[in-house]
Amino acid sequence: MTATDPFQGMGAGIHAFKAFDSAFERTRSLLWPFNWGVWLRLAVFVLCIGGFGGLSLNLISLPNPEDLANAGIASSFGHLAYIGIFLAILLIIRVIGAVFHFVLVDGLTVGPVTLFWTFDVRVRKGLRLFLFEVLLGGALLGVGALTLGLYDVSLSLETIPELFAASPPFLIAAFLLWFVMVVTIDLVVPVMITDDCGVLAGWRTVLGLGAADPGNTSAYLLTRTLLAVAADLIVTVLVLAATLFSFHITFYIEFFAIPLAFLAAGLIQAPFLAFFRYYGLLVLGSFSPERALLPSRQSSESAHGVEDAEALLVPQVR
C-alpha cells in the first residue's frame, strides 16, 4: 500500500456496500433450490450458536424452586442437582456452538455445509473462542453487579431486562460487548483460520486492518449495526408469529409445541446466519485479499464430493 493509493491491496470502493449484493447472491445460491438437509443443518447451527450474530449467551431462564416443586423436585439437593445438570447441558451446547462458528466457515467457503466434518480440527480454536465469550459475558455481569448499588434491581438472568432499562452504563456496556462479539464472529474467526492464531492475535490483525483504512472501517461498523438491528426486528416478529402458530396447531400441548417452535426459530434464522457469515467473509476479503476465503469456494452450480472438498480445505485446516 502506498501513500498515493490508500486502497491498494484492499480493493477500491466501500467494502461494506460492495459485500451486500454478493452476500445476498451467495445466500440465495446456497439455500435455493430448497434443500431440507442444508436448511436443517443451518437451523442446528443457529440453535447451538445462539442466533445469527452477536453475543450468543443463550439466556435461558433457570427454573425457580416453585416450578421444581410442582415437578416433584422439592429438596435443596434436588434443586442443586437439577440446576447442575441444566448448566452442564447449557455449557456443552455453548462449547459446541463456539466450535460451530469455525465449522460453518469451512462449510460456506469450501463446502459442503455439514455439522461435524471439520469439527475435530476446529475444537482447539472453538475452545479459545468460548473462553473469550465467557470473559465478555463475565465482564457484562460485572458491570451489572457494579450498578446494583445505584439501582434497586437484583442480578439474575430474569432481571437482566430490568438492568437494561434502569442502568445506562449496563446498556452501553452490553452494546459494546455485543459489537465486540459481532466483529469477532465476522472477521476474527476467519482470520484465526487463515493465520492459524488465537482470538487475541486475530483481534490485533483485524485492528491493524481497520486502522489502515478508517473510512471503510467506519462504513462497515455503521452498516453492520444497521443490518443487525433490521434483521433482529424481522426475526423477532417472525419467530413470535411462528411460536404462536406452533402452539395453536398443537392445541397448546407443550410436548409438541416447544420442539416445533424451536425448529421454526432455527429455520427462520438460517438465511440470516448464512448471509451474515458470507457478508463478514467478503468484507474481510476486501480489507485483506490474502485472507479472502470465499474465492476458493466452487460455484454453487458445480457440486463436488466430500473428497474433493477435503482436498481444497487442507491448506486452511490447522
Score class of each variant (00 low, 15 high):
residue 65 P to Y: 06
residue 318 R to W: 11
residue 236 T to E: 00
residue 55 L to D: 07
residue 65 P to L: 02
residue 16 A to H: 01
residue 201 A to C: 04
residue 142 G to D: 04
residue 90 L to F: 15
residue 205 T to W: 03
residue 5 D to W: 13
residue 46 V to K: 01
residue 248 H to Q: 14
residue 308 D to H: 06
residue 282 L to A: 12
residue 229 V to C: 05
residue 5 D to N: 15
residue 156 S to K: 02
residue 166 A to W: 04
residue 176 L to I: 15
residue 266 G to C: 04
residue 269 Q to F: 06
residue 39 W to Q: 08
residue 233 L to A: 10
residue 175 F to E: 10
residue 175 F to G: 12
residue 248 H to S: 15
residue 143 V to S: 07
residue 308 D to F: 06
residue 108 L to R: 01
residue 302 S to Q: 13
residue 108 L to G: 02
residue 182 V to E: 12
residue 171 L to I: 11
residue 20 F to K: 00
residue 58 N to Q: 14
residue 198 G to D: 11
residue 112 P to K: 01
residue 14 I to W: 09
residue 266 G to W: 01
residue 130 F to A: 08
residue 255 F to L: 15
residue 165 A to Y: 09
residue 50 G to C: 06
residue 180 V to L: 10
residue 245 F to D: 01
residue 179 F to H: 10
residue 283 V to K: 00
residue 178 W to F: 12
residue 214 P to R: 06
residue 145 A to N: 11
residue 299 S to Q: 04
residue 26 R to I: 07
residue 283 V to Y: 02
residue 81 A to R: 06
residue 111 G to A: 00
residue 73 I to K: 02
residue 57 L to G: 04
residue 152 D to M: 03
residue 213 D to Q: 07
residue 50 G to P: 11
residue 75 S to A: 11
residue 253 I to S: 15
residue 23 A to L: 02
residue 282 L to R: 06
residue 254 E to W: 14
residue 2 T to K: 10
residue 101 H to R: 10
residue 207 L to C: 14
residue 8 Q to P: 00
residue 11 G to P: 09
residue 162 E to Q: 14
residue 56 S to E: 10
residue 306 V to Y: 11
residue 198 G to T: 10
residue 108 L to P: 05
residue 189 V to F: 02
residue 234 I to Y: 03
residue 185 I to L: 05
residue 137 G to A: 13
residue 307 E to Y: 05
residue 106 D to Y: 06
residue 178 W to T: 09
residue 272 F to H: 02
residue 232 D to G: 08
residue 60 I to T: 12
residue 73 I to V: 13
residue 53 G to T: 04
residue 297 R to S: 08
residue 98 A to Y: 01
residue 239 V to M: 04
residue 148 L to D: 11
residue 291 R to G: 08
residue 254 E to D: 15
residue 44 V to R: 01
residue 184 T to Q: 07
residue 121 V to C: 02
residue 136 L to D: 07
residue 235 V to E: 07
residue 290 E to T: 14
residue 110 V to R: 00
residue 182 V to L: 12
residue 280 G to M: 05
residue 61 S to R: 10
residue 274 A to Y: 05
residue 151 Y to F: 10
residue 283 V to D: 04
residue 163 L to Q: 09
residue 86 F to N: 04
residue 278 Y to I: 00
residue 214 P to G: 05
residue 85 I to D: 05
residue 162 E to F: 14
residue 116 F to C: 05
residue 317 V to W: 05
residue 172 I to N: 07
residue 221 L to P: 05
residue 179 F to S: 07
residue 4 T to M: 15
residue 173 A to I: 13
residue 45 F to A: 02
residue 130 F to L: 09
residue 8 Q to K: 01
residue 73 I to E: 03
residue 277 R to G: 01
residue 35 N to F: 08
residue 158 E to S: 13
residue 139 A to D: 01
residue 77 F to P: 00
residue 64 N to P: 08
